[in-house]
Design a protein around this nucleic acid. Structure first.
Length: 429
RNA sequence: GGAGAGGUGGCAGAGCGGUUGAAUGCACCGGUCUUGAAAACCGGCAUGGGUUUAUAGCCCAUCGAGGGUUCGAAUCCCUCCCUCUCCGCCA
C-alpha cells in the first residue's frame, strides 16, 4: 500500500516509480481524488461538530426542563443532509483505497531496469557445477527409477501438479525441513513458529495477495484461503500492533505446506516437481526498523545461502530486475540452484529461494507499526521474507546433483544424520 | 452442530441512554523524597484522520465488525465474527 502523503508531496517521483513498473502515471488522478475527499471530509466533520454541540445543548436544556425544539430541528436538518455527503465521501475513499492497494511497491533505486528474468543481474556465483561422465537424468527419471516418486498415482488422487513420494524420498522432505529449521533457529536467531495454513481475507490482504491475486490462491470457503507461503501468516502476526523498538528485529521461521493455484502458469514446468499446487517450504520472515531493512535483506539472503552451502549445492544469486520483482517487494534476490538433470541433461539454474525487502509496503497495509521511545510517534515497520528454502526444489537439487550413473543418489553429508543413511536406493530393496 | 455467558485502553476491570475517549488498579514515562534503590507522594500516559507553517491549538472517528432506533449510544435493537463453559462430534 502506498502513502498518500508521498504521492501528494512527490507526484513526479511516484509517477517515475510507476513507470519503472510499466504503469502509466497516476499521481495527478490520485491526488485529485484525495483532495476532493479531504474537502468533503472537512465539510462533513464541521457538520458533525455542530451536531454534537447541539446535542449536548439539547441534553442540558432538557435536564432543566426547557424547550429544545429549535435545536432538535437544526440537528434534524443536518441529519437530512449528511447521508448524501457521507455516501460521496465513502465513494471517494474507496476509489482512493483501490488505487493505493492495487498498485505495486515502489522499487528500490538499485533494482535494474528490465522486462523479465533475462534482465536480472548476476550478483555472485558460489561453488562449481558438478561434472558427470554420463548424461545426468532429471529428478523425475531418478525418482521414478528408484520407485519413490509417483506422479501417476498423485494425478489419480488429485489431478495434475501433485506428487506422491515414498520411502526415503518421503523422509527426505522431513530431513530437509529439519536441517533448515535447525540452521535458522540455532545459527541465525530465527524463532520457530507453526502458523495456520488457512487464513482469512484480511490476512491475505495484509501481505498483498489480495485483492489482486485471488486467482492464484485456493479458497476453501468464503473468507478462508490456503496460504501460498508462510510469509502470509508470519508477517501478519505483527498486524494491527505497535512493537516496541527494543523488541526488534523480529525474526521468525516456519515449515509449512504452501498451496498455489498457478493460474498464470498453465503449460510451464509441467514435468516433475518443479511447479506443484502443493509444496512445502521453510520460510524466514524478518520485521525490522526502516534503517535496518537493507542490511537485513543481505543477512536473510545469506541465511538461505547457508543451507545450499551445507548441502554442497552450486548456486548463483540474482538481483531481480524491475519487470521480475513481485508486487509487494521493493527489492528481491533470487537464489538459483544448479540442476544438472534439466534441459536434457545439459543443466539449468532454477529458483530455489526468493528473498525480498517489502519496506513499509505490507506494514502499511496491515498497520504493523513500531515506536522508538515512550510517547514518541509510531512509524511503519519494514517487513522482509525469504525462502529458506523451498523443500520440493531443494529435493530436486539433492537428487539431480547427487545422482550416480546407476540412478542411486549420494546424499550430502549434512543430511546423513537426518536420513540415517548416505544413499538413496530403490524402494523396497 | 446445540445451549448458555461474554467481547471496553498494554493488562485487569467499572460504566449499561446525556457533558465518558471512557472510573479504578497494575504496568509504563517524568518529577519530589533518598547516599542509591525500594516505598510513598505529585504529574503524565490510546489510535487513526481532518485543519494548520506547526510534534501548538481546534475538530472528527474509534469501547469485536457492520447496520438500526434516538436530538444524543460503550450503554437499547438486528446481523455477523470471535472467546469461554456445558453437550454432541472428532485427529
Amino acid at each position: 500500500m502506498h502513502d498518500i502523503r508521498f504521492i501528494r508531496d512527490f507526484p513526479d517521483a511516484f509517477d517515475e516509480a510507476l513507470k519503472r513498473r510499466g504503469l502509466a502515471p497516476l499521481a495527478e488522478e490520485i491526488s485529485s481524488i484525495d483532495a476532493k475527499r479531504r474537502a468533503l471530509q472537512t465539510d462533513l466533520q464541521s457538520m458533525q461538530s455542530r451536531r454534537n454541540e447541539a446535542s449536548k445543548q439539547i441534553g442540558m436544556l432538557k435536564s432543566k426542563g426547557e424547550d429544545a425544539s429549535s435545536m432538535i430541528a437544526e440537528v434534524a436538518d443536518i441529519k437530512a443532509k449528511a447521508p448524501e455527503m457521507e455516501a460521496q465521501e465513502a465513494q471517494l475513499a474507496e476509489a482512493l483505497n483501490n488505487h493505493l492497494m492495487g498498485l505495486p511497491n515502489i522499487l528500490d533505486a538499485s533494482v535494474p531496469q528490465g522486462d523479465d528474468e533475462d534482465d536480472n543481474e548476476l550478483v555472485r556465483t558460489v561453488g562449481d557445477k558438478p561434472s558427470y561422465d554420463f548424461t545426468p537424468q532429471d529428478h523425475v527419471s531418478l525418482g521414478e527409477g528408484l520407485g519413490q516418486m509417483d506422479f501417476a498415482k498423485a494425478a489419480k488422487l488429485s489431478g495434475a501438479r501433485f506428487v506422491v513420494l515414498k520411502g526415503q524420498m518421503a523422509r527426505l522432505e522431513r530431513a530437509l525441513a529439519a536441517l533448515m529449521l535447525d540452521t535458522h533457529t540455532q545459527e541465525f536467531g530465527y524463532a520457530e513458529m507453526l502458523p495456520p495454513a488457512i487464513v482469512n481475507s484480511a490476512t491475505m490482504t495484509g501481505t498483498g495477495q489480495l485483492p489482486k491475486f485471488a486467482d492464484d490462491l485456493y479458497r476453501v470457503e468464503e473468507d478462508k484461503w490456503l496460504i501460498p507461503t508462510a510469509e502470509v501468516p508470519l508477517t501478519n502476526l505483527l498486524a494491527d500492533s505497535i512493537t516496541d523498538a527494543a523488541d526488534l528485529p523480529v525474526r521468525m521461521t516456519a515449515y509449512t505446506p504452501c498451496f498455489r493455484a498457478e493460474a498464470g502458469s498453465a503449460g510451464r514446468d509441467t514435468r516433475g516437481m518443479i511447479r506443484q499446487h502443493q509444496f512445502s517450504k521453510v520460510e524466514m520472515v524478518s520485521v525490522v526498523a526502516a534503517e535496518e531493512s537493507a542490511n537485513e535483506l543481505e543477512r536473510m539472503t545469506n541465511c538461505a545461502e547457508a543451507i545450499l552451502q551445507k548441502l554442497g549445492l552450486h548456486y548463483r544469486v540474482m538481483k531481480l530486475c524491475s519487470g521480475d520483482t513481485g508486487f509487494s517487494a521493493q527489492q528481491t534476490y533470487d537464489i538459483e540452484v544448479w540442476l544438472p538433470g534439466q534441459d536434457e541433461g545439459r543443466g539449468q539454474y532454477r529458483e530455489i529461494s526468493s528473498c525480498s525487502n517489502c519496506g513499509p509496503f505490507q506494514a502499511r497495509r496491515m498497520k504493523a507499526r513500531m515506536r522508538r521511545e515512550a510517547g514518541g510517534d509510531t512509524e511503519f515497520l519494514h517487513t522482509l521474507n525469504g525462502s529458506g528454502l523451498a523443500i520440493g526444489r531443494t529435493m530436486i537439487a539433492v537428487l539431480e546433483n547427487g545422482q550416480q550413473e546407476d540412478g542411486t543418489i549420494l546424499l550430502p553429508e549434512a543430511l546423513h544424520g537426518y536420513m540415517g543413511t548416505d544413499k538413496l536406493v530403490p524402494f523396497n530393496s
